[in-house]
Nucleic acid binder design. Structure first.
Lengths: 202, 202
DNA sequence: TGACAAACTTAACGATGTTAAGTATATTTG
DNA sequence: CAAATATACTTAACATCGTTAAGTTTGTCA
């Protein structure tokens, strides 16, 4: 009997409908503009219907978070084809910041916002997030092997590069107005260049 | 007649009382736990009384922001006595992050939170914030003069160091749970060391 | 002492997330 | 095929939030 399959399918469609509209609201207007009632308006159901598919608002955002991390990972992967380890590492950093500034709400959700995942058991749920960090470490390792970087604690090196690009990203997203618009791109590019290059020995 | 003076004094005391309690609530429990009603409870007045002294909630936070920037500036100044320009620059960076992690709510307010100053006219009100950035640039200038740094666009150098320490600070504050507790201090110190040192030529 | 202004409170509005109780629809069972 | 039941959804309500309007108390000055 395909009847329970159909029901499961319909349920999944409803879940996706909710997530899609929540995501649109979120991307367009940011976290504080995603309200249960606004989502309900968009999907043309009553607000309480949402609670039949999600425990609460944070569960919706946990799902959006996973989607965001996937896109984030893809953005980083788009640069992994580069042969030269040094060039790749630089491109990696630039891709990181580029993703952040062109998807500010995703980035906010992933790394800045009061963690909507406070209720999540970390080890499993953050798998998608460590994936990109592992990629960075791999690239650093490659640089060491090719003599571009001296042999250092790879954790320190990775954290240093991460904190640098994260710093750029979050300044641009949260306090970008402090920097003249025309100056921002220049600053992003040259800062990554300047900061990373200092670490290279060749 | 000292009567209007007394009234003005009493008014100022009320303003300070409100700010003090708001600040305590804010430091202890963060932004979202500061509500007009909770402040009212603490000062033992009705919620609406607060509106006789502050236009709205954001005006209270604008005041807290100024106080925070002052403390921040002081924290940076506490390291300016150091003679050697290179040592001073490193200490500056460490002092920055130290302030941030030991005053996470201040730091959040200053550089991370959805700007509570959106209604403020930037040029004047951000004076207190550019003050510390000018200090950083001065220290960098000194390093150049002493041959510690090559002659670079000072704006790029300052932004690079800022984004690095800001990155460290905001990771620790917002996603510190991703890093083992025992590892954090090590990472902070060594990352600043590693990142900054790379920029020096001597 | 009475007029008036300042300080403060009570009550309410519209928004939020969320829950409890009720209704309509679809499926299963006799 | 009709009655029983489970599923999907809605209405109404609660407590909380920032904020406003209207009313009350208090203190100052003529």
């Amino acid at each position: 009997m395909g009847i329970s399959e159909r029901k499961e399918r319909e349920r999944q469609e409803m879940i996706n409908l909710i997530l899609d509209e929540a995501m649109k609201l979120f991307i367009e207007e940011g976290y504080e503009n995603v309200t249960m009632r606004k989502i309900a308006d968009r999907i043309e159901y009553s607000p309480t219907t949402i609670y039949l598919y999600f425990k609460d608002k944070t569960e919706i955002f946990s799902e959006l978070l996973n989607i965001a991390f996937d896109k984030f990972y893809e953005a980083q992967m788009s640069v992994q084809y580069i042969e030269d380890a040094k060039e790749k590492l630089l491109a990696h950093g630039i891709a990181y910041v580029k993703f952040a500034v062109s998807n500010p709400n995703y980035y906010d959700l992933m790394f800045i916002m009061k963690d909507p995942t406070a209720n999540m058991k970390c080890p499993d749920d953050w798998k998608t997030s460590t994936r990109t960090y592992d990629l960075l470490k791999k690239n650093i390792q490659e640089c060491i092997e090719n003599g571009y970087l001296e042999e250092v604690d790879i954790e320190v090196a990775a954290f240093t590069m991460w904190s640098h690009v994260h710093g750029i990203a979050s300044i641009m997203i949260k306090r970008g107005f402090m920097i003249p618009e025309a100056f921002r791109e220049y600053l992003i590019y040259n800062s990554i260049q300047y900061g990373f290059k200092g670490l290279f020995i060749k």
